[in-house]
Simulated assay, not measured.
Amino acid sequence: MRITRRHLAAAGALALATLPTIAPITARAESADEAAVRKAIDDLSKAMLAADKAKLEALVADQLSYGHSAGRLETKKEFVDVIAGKKTIYKSITLNEPTVSVVGNNAIARHVFVVETETDGKPSQAKVGVMQVWVKDGGNWKLLARQAFRTS
């Protein structure tokens, strides 16, 4: 059989037409650890909104380094005390553009943190980029480090 340009064009059109059905099959599925880290991130947001001291303490590592976009750092005790003591009250938390990458017993999570808070009776809003480092500790994922940064 002689192959003509018409045959090549038809083959190309057929290949392009099947791409949408092939792409989902080849997309990488989320691992169990990635799903567990996403759940831990969600649980942390819920604990912050509820000012739940026990859940906050369970979700963060003892060695926590919690960095704010203005450069202020908090330890685990400081982080938990500010939220559980309602020095800062979280009214809403939205995490946009989330990504999670797991490497062994560590995970790097990134998102845009959009928040409404109240501190000393004064409402405020913020939108910052965040990078978090999570560590698997005894089968549970715990926040080890967090650094926020101003976005453009």
Score class of each variant (00 low, 15 high):
132 Q>T: 05
110 R>N: 11
120 D>M: 09
129 G>V: 06
72 R>S: 10
114 V>L: 04
142 K>R: 14
145 A>K: 05
116 E>A: 14
106 N>I: 01
69 S>E: 06
119 T>R: 12
19 L>W: 11
138 G>N: 06
3 I>S: 08
38 R>M: 09
62 D>N: 11
85 G>Y: 08
93 I>T: 09
137 D>E: 13
121 G>F: 13
90 Y>F: 15
92 S>T: 14
104 G>W: 06
143 L>S: 00
78 E>P: 02
26 T>N: 02
2 R>N: 09
109 A>R: 02
1 M>D: 07
5 R>C: 10
141 W>F: 02
90 Y>S: 06
147 Q>Y: 01
36 A>Y: 05
95 L>D: 07
93 I>M: 07
47 A>L: 03
134 W>S: 03
141 W>Y: 01
41 I>S: 12
60 V>G: 02
2 R>L: 12
64 L>P: 11
94 T>I: 11
24 P>W: 06
67 G>P: 10
21 T>L: 13
37 V>N: 02
135 V>A: 15
40 A>Q: 05
84 A>L: 11
69 S>N: 11
90 Y>Q: 12
143 L>V: 01
104 G>L: 07
98 P>L: 04
126 A>S: 13
138 G>F: 01
110 R>S: 13
116 E>T: 14
70 A>Y: 13
39 K>S: 11
44 L>G: 04
101 S>Y: 04
43 D>H: 06
116 E>V: 11
28 R>Y: 00
35 A>I: 12
31 S>R: 07
24 P>G: 08
136 K>T: 04
46 K>E: 11
123 P>Y: 02
1 M>Q: 12
151 T>V: 15
61 A>G: 03
151 T>Y: 00
34 E>N: 04
126 A>R: 08
95 L>A: 13
56 L>D: 01
128 V>C: 01
15 A>K: 04
36 A>C: 07
117 T>M: 04
148 A>M: 00
96 N>A: 12
33 D>I: 02
106 N>W: 04
16 L>G: 14
74 E>F: 06
117 T>D: 02
89 I>P: 01
46 K>V: 13
9 A>Y: 14
2 R>A: 11
97 E>R: 12
64 L>V: 10
38 R>N: 08
63 Q>R: 15
129 G>K: 10
80 V>M: 01
118 E>T: 14
112 V>K: 08
80 V>Y: 00
56 L>Y: 01
34 E>T: 12
29 A>F: 00
4 T>C: 10
59 L>G: 10
122 K>W: 01
4 T>Q: 08
57 E>T: 13
131 M>Q: 13
27 A>Y: 04
13 A>F: 10
128 V>T: 09
6 R>L: 08
82 V>H: 06
42 D>R: 13
111 H>W: 06
120 D>K: 15
96 N>M: 10
6 R>G: 02
140 N>Q: 15
78 E>N: 02
32 A>D: 12
61 A>I: 01
118 E>Q: 14
66 Y>I: 02
81 D>E: 14
15 A>I: 13
124 S>L: 01
